[in-house]
């Protein structure tokens, strides 16, 4: 079995967002970059499949030189090899999906795993778009995955519960928190990763479908007020305010 794990480098969740001088991108100063947490669940699942039934795990990312950190980490965690597609990995999901599809085609992957969304961009689009471009099955926001002979059974999160999706391999499966508990890299893994090289390829040029033309911070919220008195008085004052001022009730 051959598994591809697509990983995205994203700003850490504690990042304070500042808009760059161009008015449409994130100011990269002081940003700490990490592997998107949802992609970590995808990678962990691939490594568990490899441990359970044997598989070749290829880690892939789209980006520049700094993106190699994501791939080094994936190698340290247990990926067999890593591929960097040199191109704009922070751009439009459709563009990135086309780049990855061009690489994946005819390479015989049985399973493609990635996060259900890239943290920050929050598109939740690359996975389903990749599935469509490869003309294979998809299952998104997965919290449980079982593989059969050429088939998969996945539990996917939906409003108010979950649903079981069954389909044929190859497939694109996107991971959700809860799928597994990702491991930390071992010293042995980190040392072994240092001996591995990252294959670097120029991403196939692709057209984008949508572009960010402006990035803005949300408007400041108006100053609130504190409600005084004992617990009973505070509760009364709050409900009155929600009813009369906010008209929530």
């Amino acid at each position: 079995m051959k598994i591809l794990v697509a990983l995205k480098q994203v700003p850490d969740t504690e990042t304070k967002i500042k808009v760059a001088a161009d008015g449409r991108s994130l100011d990269p100063a002081d940003v700490k970059w990490i592997t998107s947490p949802y992609d970590e669940y995808a990678l962990e699942e691939a490594i568990r499949i490899k441990e359970a039934k044997g598989a070749e795990v290829v880690a892939l990312s789209v980006g520049g030189d700094s993106t190699k950190e994501v791939l080094k980490n994936a190698l340290a965690l247990g990926a067999d090899s890593a591929v960097l597609l040199k191109g704009d990995g922070q751009g439009d999901a459709y563009q990135v999906a086309q780049m990855i599809a061009a690489y994946v085609k005819d390479k015989g992957f049985d399973l493609i795993l990635c996060g259900n969304k890239g943290l920050g961009g929050d598109n939740a689009a690359m996975g389903p778009m990749l599935a469509e471009l490869l003309n294979v099955a998809q299952a998104n926001v997965i919290v449980k995955l079982e593989l059969g002979e050429g088939t998969f059974k996945a539990e996917r999160e939906i409003e108010g519960g979950s649903e079981i999706v069954e389909g044929a391999l190859p497939a694109v499966i996107t991971a959700q928190k809860g799928l597994n508990e990702p491991r930390y890299a071992s010293l042995k893994g980190i040392m072994a990763a240092k001996k591995k090289t990252i294959e670097e390829l120029d991403a196939t040029p692709a057209t984008s479908g949508a572009q960010v033309s402006a990035l803005a911070l949300p408007p400041e919220r108006p100053a609130g007020r504190k409600l005084e008195g004992d617990a009973a008085a505070q509760a009364q004052a709050l409900l009155q305010a929600l009813k009369d001022e906010a008209k929530v009730f």
């Binding site: 304070k16 994130l26 439009d92 929050d122 598109n123 689009a125 479908g209 949508a210 572009q211």
Partner: peptide
């Protein structure tokens, strides 16, 4: 092209334009 989870839409020069939260709402992208 696709814009997910948008919070505002308009038609500009005959095409859709969207505003959507990014970084989970820490910023908004047109």
């Amino acid at each position: 092209g696709y814009a997910s989870d948008v919070t505002a839409l308009s038609i500009v020069d005959g095409k859709l334009q969207a505003v959507r939260p990014v970084y989970a709402g820490k910023a908004f992208a047109t």
